[in-house]
């Protein structure tokens, strides 16, 4: 690996760890994953205290067992987890352009590839690890607090991995849009909007098996004990290909924006 990429990896790791974002995200993912099964377990207690018919009918369909505990955690992490993650990495996905802290490194010769590549490795990898770890923690907590323990560790790992791949896609989209435009806030909003609109598009064109935005539903199914279908592998492959494409789009955008005023000719 060349010195520039190595230095850029070091910079991203320092940025992620020293700004406490790594710690905060680890706490959010692990903490939420541990809390979700406890909330499911506590539903009965809650129901005893609340005599609201609508609430009672809503929770009537929920069976409080270990699988439900894990599913609840997966569901929460795919929603709240990603929102927190996107917001916390804003400063690495466009914030540097906005604050102009990228100016000195770029004018010193930092290439677009060296700048982007570590970002597209570290943050997606981090959210993948957090997802798997969160799902495992949810499984462990569920196994501990529920008597009818039907947890299968391999299912937990697969479910966490699928959730991780799903969330990695968001992170890549966010990094790509944010760094290319320098507007991380707008990029977060676009990512959330895409998650709402694109599934409908895939449904319209009857291509659900290629739809990366269904991965968290597959993760839920596997967490509930369903067997993994071959379609899931195809969806994962499609998602990975999209992530690589998104990286190259970001790279292209950065290179297209590169300025060279040193021409000896007069531009007209």
């Amino acid at each position: 690996m060349n010195t520039q990429i190595k230095a850029s990896f070091k910079k991203e790791i320092l940025a992620f760890t020293r700004t406490k974002r790594f710690l905060i995200l680890a706490c959010v993912f692990i903490g939420w994953a541990a809390l979700s099964p406890l909330l499911i377990k506590g539903l009965d207690v809650l129901a005893e205290g609340i005599y609201n018919e609508q609430f009672m009918s809503e929770i009537a369909g929920i069976t409080a067992n270990a699988s439900t505990g894990v599913m609840s955690a997966v569901q929460d992490l795919s929603g709240i987890g990603i929102l927190v993650f996107l917001l916390l990495i804003n400063s690495f996905a466009g914030g540097e352009q906005k604050k102009r802290s990228i100016m000195i490194p770029q004018s010193s010769g930092l290439s677009a590839f060296s700048y982007l590549f570590p970002k597209f490795i570290i943050y997606p990898l981090a959210i993948f690890i957090f997802s798997v770890a969160g799902t495992l923690v949810a499984g462990a907590v569920s196994a501990y607090i529920f008597e009818n323990n039907d947890i299968v560790i391999s299912n937990l790992i697969i479910s966490g991995a699928l959730l991780g791949v799903y969330l990695m896609l968001y992170v890549c989209l966010h990094l790509s849009l944010g760094t290319a435009t320098g507007k991380a806030g707008m990029s977060s909003a676009v990512c959330i909007a895409a998650s709402m609109l694109l599934p409908n598009f895939f449904a319209l064109v009857d291509a659900q098996m290629y739809n990366p935005f269904t991965l968290h539903i597959r993760a839920l199914e596997i967490a509930s004990g369903e067997a993994m279908s071959v379609d899931v592998i195809l969806t994962v492959v499609v998602t990975k290909v999209i992530m690589v494409l998104v990286f190259f789009v970001a790279l292209f955008a950065h290179n297209a924006k590169r300025i060279d005023n040193s021409g000896n000719e007069i531009l007209v």
């Binding site: 010195t3 520039q4 190595k6 230095a7 850029s8 070091k10 910079k11 000195i104 490194p105 770029q106 010193s108 010769g109 930092l110 060296s114």
Partner: peptide, 9 residues
């Protein structure tokens, strides 16, 4: 500065 050194090769 180490990072800048790497940036400017």
């Amino acid at each position: 500065l180490d990072f800048i050194g790497a940036c400017c090769r």
